[in-house]
Design a protein around this nucleic acid. Structure first.
Lengths: 105, 105
DNA sequence: TTGACACATGCCTATATAGGTATATATACT
DNA sequence: AGTATATATACCTATATAGGCATGTGTCAA
């Protein structure tokens, strides 16, 4: 997922199932490379495949993305705190400004 | 953030400010390597630094993690749907089971 | 069965980067 | 000033992997 190409692929798959050829057009990369990225994504469980005749339909496996989400969510607290601090500072500056110039901005 | 080491570092920083030496002990990596990872994290804005005498105190910049959070959050819908499907299937199986064996598990 | 299509895999090369070691820089201590 | 401490950087080597090209495998159509 670190690779931009893989994010591109996942984003292309976000809408729903797509064939490899579809994805090739979507990301503007040669077919073998797309297949290789898809293989990696498959192996880490980020996508699932379904066979349909001579096509392979790929789709994202949101389940696999959940751990990432959870990990990042740990830091929500951190940035919430920092936003809180920022709000406090802004509030303080605003009050000072109002005292200094009588309320005009 | 793709590198396990960097996640380790961020996790070590999750609790609050830490000096480089602290982090060296935390992740069990040599100091130059830690400094290099921290440099990368600094450059992508994932962490901030503050100087304190001969120490550099690093802290996470939750702000920078927000885009990742938002990106992953796009897929929340996907896995929610899939969990929903799963729930439906389980429910169905449960009902069939109850009919088959009279309710015992 | 032969050919066209859809996809995967194998091999090659170039590049990125992780970790190692030595060293530079800056600050505190005496 | 001289030394110890804290951190950063430079350089090297090994490894991973991205992308390119050729080819293998399986499926559909005639």
């Amino acid at each position: 997922m670190a690779e931009p190409r893989r994010r591109q692929l996942l984003d292309a798959l976000a809408a729903g199932e797509r064939s490899v050829t579809d994805l090739v057009h979507a990301v503007g990369l040669a077919q073998p490379q797309v297949s290789k990225h898809l293989r990696v994504l498959r192996e880490v469980g980020a996508v699932d495949v379904r066979e349909d005749g001579r096509h392979r339909l790929y789709r994202v496996n949101g389940h696999a993305l959940k751990p990432i989400h959870d990990w990042v969510a740990q830091y929500e607290r951190v940035w919430s705190e920092r936003f809180g601090e920022l709000d406090a500072v802004i509030e303080e500056l605003k009050e000072q400004g109002e005292k200094a110039d009588g309320g005009k901005q």
